[in-house]
Computed example of a mutant assay.
Amino acid sequence: MNHEGKPLTKPAETGTWASIRETLKVAIQALLIALVVRTLLFQPFNIPSGSLVPTLLIGDYLFVSKYSYGYSKFSLPLSEYIPIEANGRIWAAEPKRGDIAVFKLPKDNATDYIKRVIGLPGDKIQMIDGILNINGQPVKRERIADYETVDSYGQVAKVPQYLETLPGGVTHRVIERDGDNGFWDRTELYTVPAGHFFMMGDNRDNSTDSRDLANVGYVPFANFVGRAEMIFFSVDEGTPAWQIWNWPAHARWSRLFTTIH
């Protein structure tokens, strides 16, 4: 009550402050929705290297489904700073042979890697003269038209390309930049431990993957982030995606919204 006995009323909020408050409210809601989507459903990634050429190219931007394999510590943003052990998953569903998956590098549990699932727990894997062998059997591969790429000297070169069919029926393309005589075309026999997976790139002579036990090795199931699902944008190597004025000439329009196999 005021001194005249009339009830006090709250001053009307000005249009400017009401607009600011509503804008902040919408922004906070949008951020929360984005955080939930990124943590539980889909996370965007870009391809920085050529290890999965010809399937994925440098400059591809893709969505990775976080729910495909269930959730572990590494499903969370900034997981490397979370002081808990990664010792399992909830709603777990194991990766299938042939999946292209993002995982945290076991060496540091922080760096994102993307490779194809080649070996399942208990499998025996070996490269013999460029041929992938799984559990003592050579994997079928069929020579197709050469793939045009860039060699180690930056020169355009045509390299052998194959259709490889994994046990279970997944067929995908691989290239052998150095023919069947590359460094990783003759390897020891690997036995995949329980709870781990063997990952390889489709660019067999230009991929640091599970064949390199010192730098990648076997990947624990807990380290999987998600499965690559779809390319939502793609731009020529060396062209930043934010330079929208370059899109007409440098965007790879034919790759947009293509599913990943």
Rank of each mutant, 00 (worst) to 15 (best):
R211F: 03
M1F: 11
L78P: 00
S19F: 14
F103N: 05
Y61Q: 03
P138H: 08
R38E: 06
Q243L: 15
I90C: 02
L31A: 15
G122Y: 02
N223H: 15
L52C: 01
A86E: 13
Y69A: 09
H172Y: 15
L256D: 01
I175H: 00
A251T: 14
N87Y: 04
L32E: 12
T111A: 06
G136Q: 04
G15V: 12
A12T: 10
N109H: 11
A214M: 10
I47V: 15
P138A: 10
N206Y: 08
D99S: 06
I28G: 07
G136N: 01
Q29D: 03
I118V: 15
V235C: 09
Q43S: 14
V225C: 04
Q243I: 12
F198T: 00
A101E: 03
L41K: 00
G169C: 06
R116M: 07
W245R: 08
S49N: 08
I175D: 04
G195T: 09
P193F: 10
P106A: 11
E94S: 12
R186V: 10
Y69I: 08
A12C: 00
A30L: 14
A241W: 12
A241C: 06
K107I: 09
V117F: 03
I47P: 00
F103H: 04
G98S: 02
F183D: 08
Y71K: 05
T208S: 14
G70Y: 14
G130E: 08
A249S: 14
M200D: 01
D205T: 06
H196K: 12
A110C: 08
D205R: 09
S19D: 02
V159G: 05
A27V: 15
L40R: 05
T55H: 00
S254N: 11
T14I: 10
G168K: 08
V156N: 13
P193T: 01
G88D: 08
L41H: 04
F233G: 02
I144T: 05
S234E: 02
R252C: 05
K96L: 13
K66W: 05
I33L: 14
P138V: 10
L40P: 00
A93T: 14
S152W: 07
E188W: 00
P160L: 07
S19V: 05
L76Q: 04
G201Y: 05
G226I: 11
H261Y: 12
G154F: 13
H3S: 12
D99W: 01
D151G: 09
I114T: 09
T16D: 07
T208E: 14
G5W: 09
T39R: 02
S234K: 01
G217W: 10
T149F: 06
G168D: 04
